[in-house]
Amino acid sequence: MLQEAIREIQRGSAEIIDSQRIEKLLKAYFEEGKNYTVKAGFDPTAPDLHLGHTVLLQKLATFQKYGAKIQFLIGDFTAQIGDPTGKSATRKTLSAVEILENAKSYEEQVFKILDPLKTEVVFNSEWINPLGASGMLTLTTTFNVARMLERDDFDKRYKSQTPIAISEFIYPLLQGYDSVHLKSDIEIGGTDQKFNLLMGRHLQRAYEIGKEQAVLMMPILEGLDGVQKMSKSLGNYIGVADAPNDMFAKVLSVSDELMWRYYELLSTKTLSEIEVLKAGVAEGSLHPKRVKEDLALEITARFHSLEVANAAKEEFERVHAKNEIPTEMEEFSVDGEISITKALVDCGLTPSTSQARRDIKQGAAKINQEEISDEQLQLGNGEYILQIGKRKFAKLKVNA
């Protein structure tokens, strides 16, 4: 059982610092029933999570299976500064109202994955605010500027004479101080957070709390394009709050190769179960599409329900396999004749008229399931089913 736990915790990880400590904590749990703490910090800089964020949540859920008490840290104080990781300029600060609204949204979403009985939600303003000027000054003496400038993003900005706010130097110190206050045994984060995660070890040592947290880093999940990291700004994401039909279809759209990456980082299936699926695909006894459908069903059920996920699967098959129109779609109406390019934009099917023209040229645009080629087409009085590609539909009523 211990070796299985170690294997599942190491699964998909990019780097582990002090793996011996993790093994020691697991051994104490299995032999003595002793629990331990695992910290993960989230700055509530946006209200919605996507599957890239849930890579960490899945790992936290795995730790919960093996005796961990999760310290789900919402950085309501540090969010006011903004994490400088990977940034080429000082980040815009968030208001207290925005932070609280985003934090509430986070709490609602994470418990679709984590066991609330084994999770403690904490806000770092609770211990950072009482630090005061004296405590903050003491904190700044634990690290020097030269070491801070060794950090890659700071180094690039310093050499290019791009401004670095003093508050940005404070951010990793405050993240590290979270581990001091919480006395965390393990902290997990993405590979881009290595500097901040190691700061926790450094400060636990500096403040002599009697332990140094182990660090487990997870890779950044690729988006639907299979190349760049999953990101809302890049439009290659699957949102935790996505509608079930959209979520199911998006998972099915990933490549066969990327599917295995998603299985490793997002599925609750064991590594042994995934190996059986891989072997089946390799020998031809399992079709990759069937395996991908199972993954889409699992992920959609996690954030909605199995009943809803099955309905999404049936809808997908009805629309895509049988080339039918969805049973539900957004409806719009306009007064007066409208051009097809403007209609596609106004119905949210494409971001711009120039993109609409490209879609028409490429044969991706349809009206009532009939491909269109005339960019100058005007839509008169009537009702139309507009479509871009296989997944975007809208109903438009023109009152001319």
Rank of each mutant, 00 (worst) to 15 (best):
L2V: 08
E4T: 15
A5D: 02
R7G: 14
R7V: 12
I9V: 15
Q10T: 11
A14P: 03
E15I: 07
S19Q: 15
A28N: 15
G33A: 09
N35W: 05
T37Q: 15
P47N: 06
P47D: 13
L51Y: 01
H53W: 00
V55N: 00
L56D: 09
L57N: 00
Q58L: 08
K65W: 00
G67R: 02
F72A: 12
D83K: 00
D83E: 09
P84W: 05
K87Q: 14
A96H: 10
V97E: 14
V97D: 15
E107F: 06
E108K: 13
Q109W: 05
D115F: 13
P116I: 04
L117Y: 06
K118V: 07
K118L: 15
N124C: 07
I128M: 08
I128T: 02
P130F: 09
L131P: 06
M136D: 14
L139H: 06
N144M: 14
V145H: 09
L149V: 02
E150I: 05
D153K: 00
Y158R: 11
Y158G: 04
Y158K: 07
K159Q: 14
P163C: 10
A165H: 15
I170D: 08
Q175M: 14
S179L: 08
V180Y: 08
K183D: 03
K183W: 09
K183G: 04
D185H: 08
D192S: 03
Q193G: 02
K194T: 06
L197C: 04
L203S: 07
R205W: 07
A214Q: 05
A214V: 05
L216C: 06
M217F: 01
P219Y: 04
I220S: 07
E222D: 13
L224R: 00
S231I: 10
S231F: 11
S233K: 12
G235M: 09
N236W: 01
I238C: 04
D242L: 14
A249N: 03
D256P: 04
E257C: 02
S267V: 01
K269G: 03
K269T: 12
T270H: 05
T270Y: 06
I274F: 02
E275P: 12
V276S: 13
L277H: 03
G280S: 03
V281D: 07
A282V: 15
A282R: 11
S285L: 08
E293Y: 04
D294E: 15
D294I: 15
A296N: 04
E298Y: 06
E298Q: 03
I299D: 02
T300K: 01
H304S: 03
S305H: 04
A309Y: 08
E317G: 14
N323M: 13
I325C: 13
T327Y: 10
E331W: 11
D335A: 11
I338F: 06
C347Q: 05
C347D: 01
R357G: 04
D359C: 11
I360L: 00
K366M: 06
N368V: 06
Q369I: 12
E371P: 13
N381R: 11
G382Y: 07
G382H: 15
G382R: 15
Q387T: 10
K392Q: 03
A394W: 00
A394L: 02
K397W: 09
A400D: 12
